[in-house]
Design a binder for these strands. Structure first.
Length: 486
DNA sequence: CGCCGTATCACTAGTGATACGGCGGTGCACTAGT
């Protein structure tokens, strides 16, 4: 067992901090004692420090599975800035020669970043089994259940990877996971029953939760213009359609003094990078984005996250609103909902999953399968499953279960939108937390269309209180001020 | 499922009503051809 004194000495020496954030020390101690861990820590609590600490302390190689090339790039740069040179991201950005060079000298690196798809490469896998691995990390581990079944099936293969690597000590990191998603992760990673789950509350008390209903698009657009004119910037608006993302971006640029930019997967990589950098640097006030935006974004002062469309599910909703208020100051998470939005989200939930009819056609025509796996997403998925050795009846079962799950998740977010009760309580219950939220239970009910959030921010400012609904405040008085109720 | 753009119809030549097809999110790696 490593002493507390040693832990703090290393923290100070290596990272310059004198205190651990909630959960960090527990995770590190557990890993140093050789126990695999699932860590569910809310955004902004320094998840990457957990494995960086273990790597630098033990001086044993850490392999990090990361979902995005840009995320790997950021982490590599951060570590290099800290003075750690033994870092590499092994991905398709590298030339053949560079990759060969790195693979031949893999044991020299302390931190190796890798996308799950790279593990299909037998040369990479062989090189990895050759080194003395101290720790395997799955960063953004909710991707296993969010993306594995119908978007990036290689996420389902990570358990086999662990096995091939001789079951190294493993850390699965995420900000949001229900009990079911947690057990999904544990099963996929073959973590066994001895694994420890370290879970902090998903609650972010400084984020005010609200939903407003609009009758139609026009009404919604008017309200949106009104909102962004009065709310403090910077802000973030999520869309479920690239086209509408662009259109509303243009509208908001025309109708407000803010600098608004659009961000989605349809834009060239260079533009996306530029928009992100300008947002981080404060030259852009507001981003209109699809779900492509956000992972790895660490901007502390985002004051509001508005959803123009219905979010996909409560897990992704929490991921997305979690980007607001990382500085701990008063922030707002608002869904602008109109009944017609349900159709779009339902379509998106189901369209990626091959139907039984499609499966049958593909099964009967291997040529068609191979040909269309280039352009058609569901054929591509079937193709990957086949390579993974999954039979057609198994696929059919997996996809139909997935359809059910996605529709249930949609029902849950709809229930959240329509709830008459406390929204925070609803979310905490969904994430299997029993604690009572520390705010006046009527605040959500009272927030309605005439509510001016500006008052919320003003009050937080004048009281110099990041979370005006935190314990110890005079709720009745605050509510009287805010809602002008008696 | 619901929206949007285009096609087609009507009636006395440009516009309005209806019908219908297509579209709608997220990324890795690898390959072929320049």
């Amino acid at each position: 067992m490593v002493s507390e004194k040693e832990l703090y000495a290393h923290l100070k020496q290596e990272f310059g901090f004198t205190r651990f954030k909630a959960g960090q020390k527990q995770v590190i101690q557990r890993l140093l004692a050789g126990g695999s861990t699932v860590a569910i820590l809310p955004t902004g609590t320094g998840k990457s420090l957990c494995y960086q600490f273990v790597g630098t302390y033990t001086n044993q190689t850490v392999l990090i599975i990361s979902p995005l090339l840009s995320l790997m790039q950021d982490q590599v740069e951060q570590l290099r800035l800290k003075g750690e040179k033994r870092v590499v991201a092994l991905n398709s950005n590298l030339s053949y020669a560079a990759k060969k060079q790195i693979l031949a000298n893999l044991h020299q690196y302390l931190f190796i970043y890798l996308a799950p798809e790279m593990l299909n490469n037998p040369v990479v896998l062989a090189a990895l089994t050759d080194i003395d691995l101290g720790l395997l990390v799955v960063d953004e581990a909710h991707c296993i259940s969010a993306w594995g079944p119908d978007f990036r099936p290689d996420y389902l293969q990570l358990g086999k990877l662990r096995q091939k690597l001789g079951f190294p000590v493993t850390l699965a990191l995420t900000a949001t996971a229900t009990k079911r998603v947690t057990s999904d992760m544990m099963r996929s990673l073959k973590l066994g029953r001895k694994v420890k789950v370290i879970r902090n509350s998903v609650d972010r008390p400084n984020i005010f939760l609200a939903v407003e209903k609009s009758a139609d698009t026009q009404e919604k657009n008017q309200r949106l213009i009104q909102l962004i004119r009065s709310l403090p910037a910077p802000g973030l608006i999520y869309f479920s359609s690239k086209k509408q993302c662009d259109q509303i971006c243009a509208l908001l640029n025309a109708k407000s003094k803010l600098t608004v930019a659009s961000y989605h997967a349809g834009l060239p990589a260079g533009d996306r990078y530029a928009v992100q950098q300008q947002f981080l640097g404060g030259q852009i006030d507001l981003i209109c984005a699809t779900s492509a935006f956000g992972m790895g974004i660490n901007k502390p002062d985002i004051r509001y996250v508005i959803h123009y469309h219905l979010p996909e599910n409560l897990e992704s909703y929490l991921q997305e609103i979690g980007r607001a208020g990382r500085d701990g100051q008063q922030s707002l998470a608002l869904i602008l909902y109109s009944e017609q939005d349900r159709g779009l989200q339902q379509h998106l939930a189901l369209s990626a999953l091959p139907t039984n009819a499609e499966l049958e056609i593909l099964q009967n025509s291997p040529q068609l399968l191979e040909k269309s796996s280039q352009e058609n997403q569901s054929a591509q998925l079937v193709w990957r499953y086949m390579q993974m050795g999954v039979s057609f009846p198994q696929m059919s079962a997996v996809f139909s279960q997935r359809r059910t799950e996605k529709l249930q998740a949609l029902q849950q977010i709809l229930a959240y939108v329509n709830t008459q009760g406390c929204r925070r309580k609803f979310i905490l219950r969904y994430f299997d937390e029993t604690k009572t939220p520390q705010h006046f239970r009527k605040c959500c009910q009272l927030a309605n269309e005439s509510f001016d959030y500006q008052q919320l921010f003003d009050l937080a400012k004048t009281k110099n209180e990041p979370n005006i609904f935190a314990g110890g405040n005079d709720y009745e008085q605050i509510l009287k001020n805010l809602f002008k109720t008696d």
